[in-house]
Design a protein around this nucleic acid. Structure first.
Length: 317
DNA sequence: AATCCGGGGTT
DNA sequence: AACCCAGGATT
């Protein structure tokens, strides 16, 4: 089935893609949150926001975003700052590799492109920590290009509105649908609106269809209205109990975070001796745990998050 | 395709 | 306790 047939099929009842654009863009202009990264087209500020927002909720990013930009107001200030300082400003956001990669990207832009921000997706994806989503988001939100990209919100909205609820659709097909649905010239607002809708209305479970501007044009809503029992019962889609998430406390990730947090407390340049770091990170630490600790440190070292010398462990300068 | 990578909030 | 979240990189 072609993309256009698939989209047209949604609107066989006299509703066109243009109506879909109108409905969502109108809703966005009325309901959108006032978020700082929507008030700028500075590619540096857009990039910082997009990296922070990777797997991290808006409410948690907001205060960190302001502080980070105050400390590193431009691409150059970030590129020239000590990495330790960048990692410190990342506290509370998690996935600390993002901080290192963000600075590496800033340095690469300065080194490779003379500080001139790349505009096209193909170049952006070559930068560290920038994948297909972030590259598309920067191209669209900073340079207002008509590009489609997938994040968890856009993916969910596109699937519900455009695809058969009984079928599974792969990523490539979803991206093709998103591309075909772009309103040329207004993709900035369109992509923002898709994300805002997925975040505020078309949520993962218990979507608020009654206040959705796309309700009458949504295949998922139509299907669930057909079988009203499923529509009435609250959980739309029960999580399958297979492959459950592993406990976080005690995990590798947990202790990596503890190590970085301990190192952040140190004055700049100071190192943490291995025998002091162990008990700081894990109260019941004994010398027998040294292999366990050094394995963690090697992993952090590989990610560029720590430096390990004879005197001990510290954040990279 | 799976797994790893933080950590806080929600249910 | 399980699940979610403006993903990316590695294997």
């Amino acid at each position: 089935m072609t993309i256009h047939r698939s989209i047209d099929q949604n609107h066989e009842h006299s509703l066109s893609l243009n109506d879909l654009h109108q409905a969502l863009l109108k809703w966005f202009s009325e309901a959108a949150r006032d978020l700082p990264w929507r008030r700028t087209r500075d590619p540096y500020r857009i990039l910082v926001a997009e990296v922070m927002l990777q797997q991290t909720q808006v409410d948690r990013v907001l205060p960190k975003y302001a502080a980070f930009l105050e400390r590193f107001p431009t691409l150059h200030t970030l590129a020239e700052a000590p990495t330790a300082e960048v990692i410190r400003m990342w506290a509370g956001l998690g996935y600390n590799r993002r901080a290192v990669n963000l600075q590496r990207a800033a340095r690469a832009i300065c080194a490779r492109y003379g500080g001139v921000f790349p505009r096209d997706v193909a170049t952006l994806v070559t930068l560290p920590g920038i994948g297909s989503y972030t590259a598309g988001a920067v191209a669209c939100f900073a340079f207002e290009q008509d590009v489609a990209f997938m994040d968890t919100n856009i993916r969910r909205v596109i699937r519900r509105v455009f695809t058969d609820p009984t079928e599974t659709v792969n990523e490539r097909a979803l991206l093709a649908l998103a591309r075909a649905a772009l309103p040329v010239g207004r993709s900035w607002m369109w992509n923002q609106a898709l994300m805002e809708l997925g975040s505020l209305v078309c949520t993962a479970d218990a979507p608020a269809c009654w206040r959705c501007p796309l309700r009458d044009q949504c295949r998922d809503y139509a299907a669930r209205r057909e079988s009203d029992e499923r529509f009435a019962s609250a959980p739309v889609r029960k999580r399958l109990a297979e492959r459950r998430e592993r406990p976080f406390i005690g995990s590798n990730r947990y202790f990596r975070g503890r190590i970085i947090e301990a190192l952040r407390m140190l004055p700049s340049g100071a190192t943490f001796a291995l025998n002091d770091l162990g008990p700081q990170v894990r109260p019941e630490y004994t010398p027998d745990d040294e292999v366990w600790l050094t394995t963690l440190i090697r992993g952090l070292e590989r990610d560029g998050l720590v430096v390990w010398t004879e005197t001990g462990v510290r954040l990279p300068e």
